[in-house]
Design a protein around this nucleic acid. Structure first.
Lengths: 113, 113
DNA sequence: AGAATATGCAACCCGACGGTTGCGTATCGT
DNA sequence: ACGATACGCAACCGTCGGGTTGCATATTCT
């Protein structure tokens, strides 16, 4: 049970690390909105270089959050939402235990006159 | 709506960044389990220095994930689950849009003979 | 073929991060 | 009062992350 938590946390860390950058979150946002986008398309409107975006995509890909599909001379990227669920369940576990603890504390206080 | 997304992402990033470290996740795990713990208590069992733990606690505190209560010569730390909800809703927004997109794509394919 | 477009690769810069060590200060226990 | 305990502060270090620039390669278009 607590082992489950620890394991979940270890899996969650890399995903969170990948999510812990505003630029990368914006990239995910773009990908969640439209279809698969090419690197230059993703770079459009961003205030960093295409190379920077490429690196970010690499990080996201390592975390499994995104995958690429080569198509001629361009390389289109699309979202893979699976790790998002991993991250969410990770958050749930911590939050859940925290709630439980508060609950226990609450009932403990309430029984005390 | 899309503005809502961007704002949510900007709020989420620091939280994710704070969560993107295994040691910090373990700290949160410890805090979610028991009551408020002192720094030395948190350090116990960890393979890094007390100072390192102190720094991690600082990062977590900056993200609002944790707060401290001074108590005599010791400083006890407890979880604040609010940012976890922020992070979760952030994930939800991205995942939700992604699901919607898949849904639209699916129905589009299905109507196409 | 030749220009334009889309991307890859590698070197380099710099600041932030994770971590340690050394020492000082405050508080508790006896 | 005095030792032990809990913590803070500051300097220092190696590494990694985000970013850029320059140049090479592949594909498309006309």
């Amino acid at each position: 049970m607590s082992r489950n938590l620890t394991a979940s946390l270890r899996k969650g860390a890399p995903v969170f690390a990948a999510l812990g950058d505003e630029t990368r979150l914006r990239i995910l946002s773009k990908l969640s909105g439209g279809g698969p986008l090419s690197i230059t398309q993703i770079t459009e409107g961003e205030d960093v270089t295409r190379q920077a975006i490429t690196k970010h995509l690499g990080v996201l890909a390592d975390a499994g959050l995104v995958r690429d599909v080569r198509q001629g001379r361009e390389r289109r990227w699309e979202l893979d939402a699976a790790p998002l669920d991993v991250a969410r369940s990770c958050l749930d576990l911590v939050a859940q235990r925290w709630e439980q603890r508060l609950e226990r504390l609450k009932s403990l206080v309430e029984t005390e006159p």
